[in-house]
Design a binder for these strands. Structure first.
Length: 271
DNA sequence: AACGCGCCCTGTCCGC
DNA sequence: TGCGGACAGGGCGCGT
């Protein structure tokens, strides 16, 4: 479900809500969500303090005093901070009871998400295998241009590969290509320097704008307080099949690439 | 080695 | 009203 802006929003929420909190108890309701042994997972986080919270790609990374609790939300995962008396939601996966009485809930209807505890060195290696952060200063137009050389994949599919650029999923791949006026079918290696520059700028702009609006709620996404993001109203092509292009009025088209829906304007995004 | 596909799972919506 | 099929912010493991 969540792409970079949604995960970033949750991480910032968690930073203000639970930094410094102590985890007093853990109960794993759905063991299939845990990578590794669930009992070991519970032991590794109980009686630990939440020292820091950060985002890497689409992962929430919680420093529990050396070890890292890494949460990937899959399609429908939510991390919710709730008061002691709160009614628990359906599809509860993991419950973290805090010493102050509040609870952090991991909820996931489809259970595509995963939670894992690992030591800092293991996490460092895992993180190193992921692609570049698109909002970092290391990510430049030149970087995008060079990475795309040699890839025969359609640029839309290429953009979603987390080993290259992280955090861009189906919604923002569609939106960035529309803003850059590039056809989603174009082979990545055929991007010109000018197109690489436009795409680089469009990726950063759409991700940053969405963060400013606390992410896109298409169906399931909620922030750590259970609220929807407001960016859905600002999407220009995603889920707008047959509706008029906001630039030229042409009907937005939907095609399928690598099993995922692609939305684009056939006029604004030619060649 | 890069790339495409099927699969993991539940819920919702649409057409018949 | 019921039922089958398609589809939904992701990612892994497989085959070629």
């Amino acid at each position: 479900m969540p792409e970079l802006p949604e995960v970033e929003t949750i991480v910032r929420d968690l930073q203000s809500l639970v930094s410094g909190a102590r985890i007093e108890d853990v109960s794993v309701v759905h063991p299939d969500l845990i990578v590794g042994d669930p009992a070991e997972f519970a032991r590794a986080v109980v009686d630990r303090e939440i020292v820091g919270i950060s985002r890497r790609a689409k992962n929430i990374v919680i420093d529990v005093g050396g070890d890292r609790l890494v949460i990937n939300l899959g399609m429908t995962g939510r991390v919710l901070v709730v008061p002691a008396e709160a009614v628990e939601p359906s599809h509860l996966g993991v419950r973290f009871s805090l010493a102050d009485g509040r609870t952090i809930l991991y909820q996931d209807v489809r259970r595509f998400g995963r939670l894992q505890v690992m030591d800092a060195a293991t996490w460092k290696a895992r993180s190193g295998a992921l692609g570049i952060e698109p909002l970092s200063s290391e990510f430049t137009p030149e970087h995008l241009y060079r990475m795309s050389r040699g890839s025969r994949s359609a640029v839309k599919v290429w953009l979603m590969d987390q080993k290259r650029i992280v955090g861009v999923g189906n919604i923002y791949a569609n939106e960035a290509l529309f803003r850059a006026r590039i056809s989603p079918r174009k082979a990545a290696r055929r991007l010109s320097r000018g197109e690489s520059e436009r795409l680089h700028a469009a990726i950063r702009k759409v991700l940053q704008e969405s963060i400013d609006f606390r992410g896109t709620t298409f169906l399931d996404y909620r922030d750590a307080g259970g609220e929807k993001g407001a960016f859905a109203a600002r999407l220009r092509v995603y889920d707008r099949e047959s509706e008029p292009c906001l630039t030229c009025g042409s009907a937005i088209r939907r095609i399928v690439q690598a099993g995922r829906s692609t939305f684009y304007c056939p006029l604004c995004q030619r060649g």
